[in-house]
Amino acid sequence: MASLITCPHCGVRPKEEFAIRGDASLVRPAPSASDEAWHDYVYVRANPRGRTVEHWHHVAGCRRFLVVERDTVTHEVYSVVDAAAAVRGAER
């Protein structure tokens, strides 16, 4: 993971082509959501030790945001999917 990412659009690419945005499990609250919900969205992180999902941006490639599911201890990557596809999948 720390060396290579398999981009669903571009194939196996080196880490330095990507910028990492952070936790991809967060869902942006509705405008009317509570202050606490907004605080948690912007400031609180589960920060798991183990399996996590993270947004990686293929800045020097297809410029798509990807959801990388990986392990924060072993750095093993379980899956990489396009972020938009992931959101649509979650909505379905």
Binding site: R21, H55, V59, R64, A83, A84, A85, V87
Partner: peptide, 18 residues
Amino acid sequence: AGAVMSHMEYCAQALWPD
């Protein structure tokens, strides 16, 4: 310039893909 472009892409792809 770069950060804004990335931000827009994030919003379009990860927040509001529809």
